[in-house]
């Protein structure tokens, strides 16, 4: 059983992103949506939390939310895969259960 975690908060405003990372297990995935996508950007104070990850957790960010916020895909950390809403749906079906870090 593996969990898809969603995070919709900026890591600079709320602890949801940090709390999420502390509660992931091997084989889990994290999908950044809404203001959560700011955590996917290269060169920020929290970028190490993603780039330095152990690789056991897959990372995704929602493309439409990145685009809306003026973040180009080239600004996104390489280990983060960008998906659209269809990809979001696929992730929900691929993982056994989802947990929203509101």
């Amino acid at each position: 059983m593996s969990v898809l975690h969603t995070v919709n908060k900026s890591p600079f405003e709320k602890a949801a992103f940090e709390s999420c990372l502390k509660h992931t297990g091997p084989g889990d995935a994290v999908l950044l949506i809404e203001d959560g996508v700011y955590a996917a950007v290269k060169g920020t104070a929290v970028a190490d939390r993603i780039a330095g990850g152990n690789g056991a957790v897959s990372l995704y960010a929602l493309g439409p939310d990145l685009a809306a916020r003026g973040i180009t895909e080239s600004a996104v950390i390489e280990t983060v895969k960008v998906v659209d809403y269809g990809g979001f749906v696929d992730l929900i079906t691929e993982y056994d259960v989802s947990q929203a870090w509101l």
Binding site: E34, P64, Y85, V89
Partner: peptide, 12 residues
Amino acid sequence: SAYQFVKAALEK
């Protein structure tokens, strides 16, 4: 977000 998700899920 829910609305966009639901639309995409229905399309699939």
